[in-house]
Design a binder for these strands. Structure first.
Lengths: 162, 162
DNA sequence: CATGGTTAAATGCAAATGCATGAAGTAGTC
DNA sequence: GACTACTTCATGCATTTGCATTTAACCATG
């Protein structure tokens, strides 16, 4: 129950950590240099914009984004502060609320996507053939822990990430 | 120069971000539950323990670990506070210093490795054949940005990560 | 050996994170 | 309906990060 990992597995782990960190950094830096907010904002805006009425319960957002609860709560604060989303009362469950994306939010999401997608292309797309990208996905998916929903993320016109 | 990424590339990016985050979290949690400090400490201790006389210049550590300068500086503070390393004067360059691992540091590194390796096995090794791990490495290495030194990380008896 | 440019490392301050807890509501059970 | 257990969300507080700046030392050049 406590066997050691093979050196191959260890090497894969190392690569996974280092490469992700590097690529993420690169993309985030590009985005920041272009004057945009952090990626997490984009992810949240995308999730909201995709949701049925442009609104979601914080709990749902939290699950989609794999963020801790308090983190989601504060992210929403910031979006609201910037006028990118609004909090709405939730009639059916008075504990809760809905977070609805605003027009400004949708616009920022679109603008960010053009910078973001350029980053993905630059730091991922251009280094991998489509076939290899597919292989990479396949291998990574096998590491997807107990979390059936990961594969459900259709890539429509943007990534939902982190 | 600003072409859009293929959906394959985008999907790979998403997987890379999500899977890494999940796996890292899982391993870090296991480690924390076992009462150990964060992974970054392990990485630093490992680098130090491998270095010629068990000592490195902060700059070098910084490069190995892909951390910002101030972050390394503070990490060293913490290691020193806990008696896991000591700062030594650097005769040849009075600006600088050496950081030397202590016996306590080496011991912690070894102890952490047994928990850490169990985590790698549990969250990576057990989900991938050795052959697939090798394939994964190969694909990830192609994303390794302008940074020739990444591949130089021999996997001796532990991962150096992040 | 003065002097302007560069590198090593630390640090003050603001913002972000993690953790634990609290307040308010829902839901099942008796 | 009263009680207990659980869910949703916010928040105070300590720690950690990120950023910009500072201090000190090196180094090349004239």
């Amino acid at each position: 129950m406590k066997r050691k990992p093979s050196t191959e597995a260890t090497a894969a782990w190392i690569r996974l950590m280092r490469v992700q960190s590097r690529v993420l950094n690169a993309v985030e830096q590009d985005l920041k240099k272009a004057g945009f907010p952090p990626l997490a904002w984009y992810d949240a805006l995308l999730e909201l914009s995709r949701a049925p009425a442009g609104e979601l319960r914080p709990v749902e957002l939290e699950k989609q984004m794999l963020l801790p609860q308090y983190s989601t709560s504060r992210l929403i604060d910031r979006l609201v502060d910037e006028g990118l989303a609004v909090r709405r009362e939730c009639k059916i469950d008075k504990r809760g609320q809905f977070v609805e994306i605003t027009e400004a939010g949708r616009e920022l999401q679109r603008k960010m996507w053009s910078a973001y997608s350029a980053g993905i292309e630059k730091h991922v797309g251009s280094k991998l053939s489509d076939a290899d990208a597919v292989k990479l996905c396949g291998l990574l998916d096998r590491l997807g822990c107990s979390c059936g929903e990961a594969a459900s993320l259709a890539v429509k016109d943007g990534a939902a990430v982190r």
